[in-house]
């Protein structure tokens, strides 16, 4: 257990190994570890960012979807309104047409009736005149009794 020059030798060897470690061993290991650490934290950050943007996209998507839904609902409502309007228009037009047809038909009927009545009256008055002439002979002429006949026709 002597203290001798081994002590100095060991001190020198110590310095040499520390220097080697300082220059060639420590820096590469530390840089590798730091670089990896940085990469991992960057990756985590990117993942967080991606998460955030996914959330944002989801929100935007929901918003768009809701808008589209409400738009669709609006369009549907409008279409319904339009359809019912069209149906309403059509039915009222048809009603009007039907009424018109009815009116013209009844007018025609009335006219025909009147015409028939007039003809009948005419024929009746001719028949009466004929009959009366036959009965009375030439006593009565159409010219003389026109006024009487007219009066009779009006009474009929």
């Amino acid at each position: 257990m002597n203290i001798n020059a081994t002590l100095i030798a060991q001190a020198l060897v110590f310095v040499v190994f520390v220097a080697i470690c300082w220059k060639y061993v420590w820096p590469p290991i530390i840089s590798i570890m730091e670089e990896r650490e940085k990469r991992i934290s960057d990756g985590l950050e990117a993942a967080k960012k991606a998460d955030d943007s996914l959330e944002e996209a989801k929100l935007a998507f929901d918003k768009e979807l809701n808008q589209a839904k409400s738009e669709a609902a609006g369009i549907l409502e409008k279409a319904n309104a339009r359809a019912s309007q069209i149906v309403g228009d059509a039915s009222s037009k048809a009603e009007a047409e039907a009424e018109k047809i009815m009116t013209s038909a009844s007018t025609t009927i009335e006219n025909e009736t009147n015409k028939a009545k007039e003809e009948l009256r005419q024929q009746m008055s001719e028949i009466i005149i004929d009959t009366t002439q036959k009965i009375l002979g030439d006593e009565i002429s159409p010219e003389k009794h026109d006024a009487i006949l007219k009066k009779a026709a009006e009474e009929l």
Partner: peptide
């Protein structure tokens, strides 16, 4: 187990 070795390193640290 050699005091020269341990004290040698301690000397380095001391410097």
């Amino acid at each position: 187990t050699d005091p020269n070795i341990t004290l040698g390193m301690a000397l380095g640290v001391f410097i």
